[in-house]
Design a protein around this nucleic acid. Structure first.
Length: 711
DNA sequence: CCGTACTATTTATAGACAGCATGTC
DNA sequence: CTATAAATAGTACGG
């Protein structure tokens, strides 16, 4: 503590901290306040944010900007609101420090960001800022990279790896503070990033891990105890925790299992609620119904929340998800079941974490495979609420049906150490994607210079140089043969098509598929909406891709037959996904009931499909524009709007009105207001009498039409 | 013949980042 | 080539 400078002490004081946690002291000793780059590996909730905040404060005092990088939008906004605490501190800037967030869905404009001192971004957003060559990056003195262990993720690791590589290369003087969960090759990572390594296993609450088998639990501290057998082992363990006064969190391997475990727990939990708790639960349940949609999933969830139990997974509507999170935090929901969404996302700790199974289905493998020790430790990280519990517990349920015994599980997971982090940049998709952006952002590099960029990746450290060379070269060949890049005098530049692809942030494969498909479309007046939609949903960038169920092909086949003339290529119902089908119905104004109950598409999935679908439809529009296909532009623009709002073509003009979405647009149309001029002509009272449109909305519509006319 | 309890068969499988703000026949 | 739990369809049996 004696090493702490007064300024930092003052900052800590104004943030409400008196002393530092051990890992925080270690980070200071490593020189984090002197601008030294550091990799901090500690368990979750051990105060990494404060470490970052101290470094950020120091950076701002030097008149530099700080960038904070996270893997999730939800974490970005959470961190931003944590960091807002800095806005209240005088750092000698002569003004208030400014904290801003920019993510794909919530974008502060580039200009605004230039005036911010602390900028919170997702890793991908940072990548796009590099691609756009934002000017203020030179003013950044500190990059904080949170959850750096994501480097080992097959899908999203490469972006993080390339981004860190680029930061090191372009801004060698900038300080890097990398925050990571515990990994076994932390020294290799810190060496790669030229960082000092700070390792600590300290936690603010003690964590005791154990394994449940045949009705009894063996804990890491030597304790053993039996659990009252009830409906199902994970539920029994959770209820046992409630009886000891602590909330419980069950991690399940599938969504279905999460909701079924919650249902099993409902009666037992409800019996344990007192009158006040029951009232609060009923209120939360009503809120879910009120703010959510009409899908079966939402109704089931509301019913369970009314009993003090909930499930949480990516199928929930964003509104339901938020209410569940808040209710659990507030203690209204006593027992929560969840898929791994909660392991990486917002911090929702519980006294006891139950891992219902260490197996998870892997489609490529064709069976269940055990999760990694690192994943398991991530789940454990949610055990123990610093403010309420002195210690947290994590218990794995060992299924008696599987070959692995409780003892083996204990040895492997409880006593085990997380796996080393492996670069995932060797994947073809990842290499192509990042190679294109490298060439597009620095035009005119020769092959050796390009190789040099990849030579400073973690990938190059972990693989033979011949492998790296081979991978990069074959990706280069691909990009060249598809005319995304071209070489002149051995210097590589991106073509217009390549540049556009890089800025749209789509997979080169997606761009090529789009281009080739559009080029095959004959010029003319024929409509191709369904074909375009298929193209979008088939893209490797589209997510989520739901497979057809056994009973679906008949109905999809009918849809294809009816609209065969809209297709771009010959295809059958077996070339379709349920995502394609659902979006097609969505664009025909199918409701939550149809989508959820008949098609089995949960609200959260629909939300994401609309989001990615719209982005890709926009990209398809841009590719068509680049190809000079004016004949398709209006139809592609319509496609984008229809995906976004879930409407038939006739409603497109109406949703341009602020405050009018799919439901109100349909209501207006049904009342005879079939276009904007008709709405403009109608008296306000007439609009207000249309169902779903009250006086307030009618006024809003009138006001903006008046504004529009004035321009 | 019907309802219930049990058994065989079928079905489906975690999560999540990114762009940009028209101009038609 | 590989798994497993939940939902659903099918079957046996008692009344």
């Amino acid at each position: 503590m004696q090493t702490m400078p007064d300024t930092v002490k003052a900052i800590l004081g104004s943030l409400g901290y008196e002393s530092l946690y051990p890992p925080q002291e270690k980070a200071m000793a490593a020189g984090i306040l002197d601008g030294k780059s550091v990799l901090v590996t500690t368990p979750t909730a051990s105060g990494k944010t404060l470490v970052a905040m101290m470094a950020i404060a120091k950076t701002l005092q030097k008149g530099k900007k700080a960038v904070y990088l996270t893997p999730l939008r939800a974490l970005a906004s959470e961190k931003a609101s944590d960091l807002k605490a800095l806005e209240g501190i005088d750092l000698g800037l002569g003004r208030q420090p400014k904290v801003m967030v920019a993510t794909g869905d919530y974008d502060s404009s580039g200009k605004e960001l230039a005036f911010a001192d602390v900028i919170v971004l997702t890793n991908e957003k940072m990548d796009t800022l590099f691609r756009h060559g934002v000017e203020w990056l030179g003013e950044v003195g500190l990059f904080v990279a949170d959850e750096v262990h994501l480097i080992g993720d097959r899908e999203r690791g490469p972006t993080l790896e390339m981004m860190l590589t680029r930061i090191r290369k372009l801004y060698p003087d900038a300080q890097i503070v990398a925050l990571s969960a515990t990994v076994s090759n932390a020294d290799e990572i810190s060496d790669w990033l030229a960082c000092a390594l700070v390792e600590s296993s300290w936690r603010p609450t003690k964590l005791v891990e154990g394994v449940y088998e045949y009705g009894s639990v063996r804990m890491g501290d030597g304790r053993t105890f039996r659990v009252q057998a009830g409906t199902s082992a994970p539920v029994d363990l959770a209820i046992d925790s409630l009886d000891n006064g602590g909330q419980a969190l069950i991690f399940a391997e599938t969504r279905k299992r999460a909701s079924s475990l919650a249902a099993k727990a409902a009666e037992g939990v409800y019996r344990r609620l007192d009158k006040g708790a029951k009232e609060l639960a009923a209120k939360a349940a009503a809120e879910i119904l009120d703010k959510g949609d009409d899908a079966e999933l939402t109704r089931t969830l509301a019913q369970l929340v009314g009993k003090g139990v909930a499930f949480h997974h990516a199928g929930l509507a964003p509104s339901s998800r938020k209410i569940v999170e808040e209710s659990f935090k507030a203690g209204v929901v006593k027992l929560l079941t969840a898929t791994p969404t909660l392991a990486a996302g917002v911090n929702l700790p519980a006294r006891r974490v139950v891992v219902a199974s260490i197996l998870r289905y892997d489609g490529e493998y064709g069976g269940n495979v055990p999760i990694s020790v690192m994943e398991y430790k991530q789940l454990c990280g949610r055990a123990g609420r610093p403010k309420y519990d002195t210690s947290g517990e994590a218990i794995i349920v060992a299924e008696s049906t599987t070959a692995t015994s409780g003892e083996e599980i204990y040895d492997h997971y409880v006593l085990g150490t997380p796996e080393p982090l492996r670069s995932q940049l060797a994947g073809d998709r990842a290499i192509r994607f990042h190679l294109l952006s490298t060439i597009a952002s620095v035009p005119g590099m020769k092959k050796p210079e390009i190789m040099e960029v990849f030579a400073s990746t973690l990938f190059a450290r972990q693989y033979r140089s011949a492998t790296v060379q081979f991978k990069v070269e074959s990706a280069l060949e691909y990009l060249e043969s598809e005319e995304l890049v071209k070489a002149r005098n051995e210097r590589y530049v991106a073509t217009e098509f390549g540049k556009r692809t890089s800025l749209l942030y789509i997979d080169p494969q997606t761009a090529v598929d789009f281009r080739d498909a559009l080029n095959r479309v004959e010029k003319g007046r024929r409509r191709h909406t369904l074909g375009f939609l298929h193209l979008v949903t088939q893209s490797p960038d589209f997510y989520p891709k739901l497979a057809l169920r056994k009973k679906d092909p008949d109905e999809v086949s009918l849809l294809l037959q009816e609209r065969r003339d809209e297709l771009l290529y010959d295809m059958s119902e077996y070339d379709c996904s349920r995502s394609f089908w659902a979006l097609a119905e969505w664009m025909e104004e199918a409701g939550d009931r149809t989508l959820g109950d008949r098609m089995g598409v949960e609200p959260g999935d629909m939300h994401r499909m609309v989001e990615t679908g719209e982005w890709l439809a926009y990209s398809l529009y841009e590719v068509a524009k680049l190809l000079g296909r004016e004949d398709m532009l209006s139809e592609l623009y319509a496609l984008r709007t229809r995906i976004r709002y879930g409407i038939k073509e006739e409603l497109i003009p109406l949703v341009a009105l602020e405050g009018v979405g799919r439901v109100r647009a349909r209501a207006l149309y049904a009342a005879g207001f079939t276009d904007v001029p008709k709405v403009a002509k109608a008296p306000q009272a007439k609009l207000a009498s249309v169902p779903k449109i009250g006086p307030a909305v009618a006024e809003k519509i009138k006001a903006q039409l008046a504004r529009r006319q004035a321009q």
